[in-house]
Amino acid sequence: LGNGVNGYIENQINSLANPQVITVLRNTNGKKMNQDQLQASMQNMAANPQAMFLKNQDLNRLKNIADVAKVQPGYSIAAYKINYQDKVQSGTNLNSWSKAYTTNSIKKGHVPHANQIVLNKQQAIQLAGAKHYQRLLNQTVTITFNWVNDDGQPTQSTRAVKVVGFTSGVSATTAMSYQTIKSMLNESGASTQPNYAAVSVKSLDRVDKTATKINNLRDIKTNKQILGAITVGSMLKTVNTYVQLATIVLAAIAGISLLVSALMIIVTMYMSVSERTKEIGVLRALGERKVDIRRLFTAESLFIGFFAAILALVLAYGAQLILNHELYHLIKYDIVQISLGNVLFALVSALLIAFLAALLPARRAARLNPIKALAAD
Results as ranks from 00 to 15, higher is better:
Tyr8Cys: 05
Glu10Gln: 15
Glu10Gly: 13
Glu10Met: 09
Leu16Phe: 00
Ala17Leu: 14
Pro19Phe: 04
Val24Ser: 10
Asn29Thr: 07
Gln35Phe: 03
Leu38Phe: 02
Ser41Gln: 13
Gln50Met: 13
Arg61Gln: 12
Arg61Ile: 01
Asn64Arg: 14
Ser76Thr: 10
Ala78Asp: 08
Lys81Asp: 09
Asp86Cys: 04
Gly91Arg: 14
Leu94Asn: 06
Thr103Tyr: 05
Thr103Cys: 00
Gly109His: 07
His110Pro: 00
Gln116Arg: 13
Gln122Glu: 10
Ala124Val: 02
Leu136Pro: 04
Ser177Lys: 12
Lys182Asp: 12
Pro194Ala: 01
Ala198Lys: 14
Lys213Met: 08
Lys213Glu: 02
Asn215Leu: 05
Leu217Ile: 15
Lys221His: 06
Asn223His: 10
Leu227Gln: 09
Thr238Val: 10
Ala252Trp: 02
Ile253His: 04
Ser257Pro: 07
Ala262Tyr: 01
Ile265Val: 14
Thr268Lys: 12
Glu275Arg: 15
Leu286Tyr: 02
Gly287His: 08
Arg289Pro: 02
Lys290Leu: 06
Phe306Asn: 10
Ala308Asn: 15
Ala312Val: 07
Leu321Glu: 06
His329Gly: 05
Gln337Ile: 11
Ser349Tyr: 03
Ala354Thr: 04
Leu356Phe: 13
Ala358Gln: 05
Ile371Lys: 11
Ala373Trp: 06
